[in-house]
Computed example of a mutant assay.
Amino acid sequence: MKGQYATDQGRVRNHNEDAGGIFKNNYNQYLSIVADGMGGHQAGDVASQMATSIIEEKWQETDQISKPEEAEMWLKATIEQVNKEIYEKSIKEESCKGMGTTVVTVIHTQDFVTVAHIGDSRCYLKNEAGFSQITEDHSLVNELVRSGQISNEDAEHHPRKNVLLKALGTEEVIYPDIQTVTWETDNMILLCSDGLSNKVSDSELQSFITGDESLVDKVQGLIALANERGGEDNISLVIVHHELLMEEGEKSC
């Protein structure tokens, strides 16, 4: 496996509330994460950094994961703990009142990936069947689309497009969506915040992902495209390519 993480402030925001990375445990297993913070006076970055750092710390301490059930249990317990810590900080500190963050995180093994998410940061999978989004946004517009009240086209321009129905740290108890999918050589995973997915179509994401460029060029090209189209939001993404070995020059945490 090899992977690349990148984040960019964008062209409008005065600071970056996204966080993320690719992290290794003691058994050379990898976990990737993207978190998009919101709320409070510059507290979104506090929430996203808390989520990322707590998950990273716990991942580096974890035992080897060999079964999907183990990965799912680990992600559920870890995200619930992160939610508790962010929620408690938001209650205790006035400057952090109302803060929260999306999170999408993936455990990568040689045979499967396990994905957990809350909010509208996304996970896409490229495999022999094609390229597709495998997470469901926890957003108002996605629920309107799912219930048939608006079309996908309407959703792109809906005035409440950014309204989330779930975010990490905003409620005392919250449960992530978790799934496991088969993961084979030459498959790829893309994680991203909505600063990318709101500016770049799925077909364009697929074109970048399946191109011949290096992972560094892929992530930087996608960030540049989102910025060319306005860059109103922070932009963060992870690409992980299933290869036999992780090349240190390609990994960025």
Rank of each mutant, 00 (worst) to 15 (best):
A47E: 04
N16W: 00
E70S: 09
D194H: 00
A167P: 03
F112E: 03
I209R: 08
E61D: 15
S66M: 15
V141H: 07
L144I: 08
I54N: 05
Q49E: 14
I86L: 04
H138M: 03
H41W: 10
G221Q: 07
A155K: 01
V82F: 00
R229Q: 10
D233V: 07
M246N: 15
E136I: 12
L191F: 04
V34P: 02
F112Q: 03
T185Y: 12
D120A: 02
Y124M: 05
K2P: 01
N142D: 03
L144N: 08
K97C: 09
I107A: 13
G231N: 05
I107P: 07
L164F: 06
Y30M: 10
D111W: 13
E213H: 11
H108I: 07
G20D: 00
S201V: 12
Q220H: 13
V106D: 04
D177Y: 09
E156C: 11
V106T: 09
V238A: 05
N25S: 10
K199Q: 15
Y175Q: 14
N227F: 05
R13N: 01
E228V: 07
S207L: 14
D233E: 07
V240M: 12
Q9N: 00
Q81S: 14
C96I: 13
C253A: 12
C123G: 08
T109C: 09
I107Q: 10
E171D: 12
F112N: 04
H108P: 05
T62Q: 13
Y124C: 06
A71N: 08
E184R: 02
I55R: 11
G98M: 07
K76E: 13
Q220G: 06
I150G: 06
N28S: 13
L205K: 13
V113E: 05
I33V: 14
T182A: 09
T180E: 01
T114L: 06
E136A: 12
S151F: 04
G221F: 07
A35Q: 06
F131C: 03
S139K: 05
A77I: 12
S147Q: 12
Q133C: 11
A51Y: 00
L140F: 11
I134E: 00
A71Y: 06
Q179S: 12
Q49K: 14
V34I: 13
L191H: 03
A43D: 04
E248P: 11
F131N: 03
V219W: 02
K218I: 09
E93Q: 15
H41A: 14
Q29P: 03
T62S: 15
I134D: 00
V173A: 14
P68S: 09
Y27H: 14
D212E: 12
S48A: 07
H117Y: 10
L215N: 02
Y87G: 01
R11E: 06
G37E: 04
L165H: 02
E17M: 01
A155L: 02
T109F: 08
S66I: 15
S132Y: 08
T185H: 11
N162R: 12
S252Y: 10
S132M: 10
V181M: 05
D120E: 06
N187L: 01
A43C: 04
N227S: 05
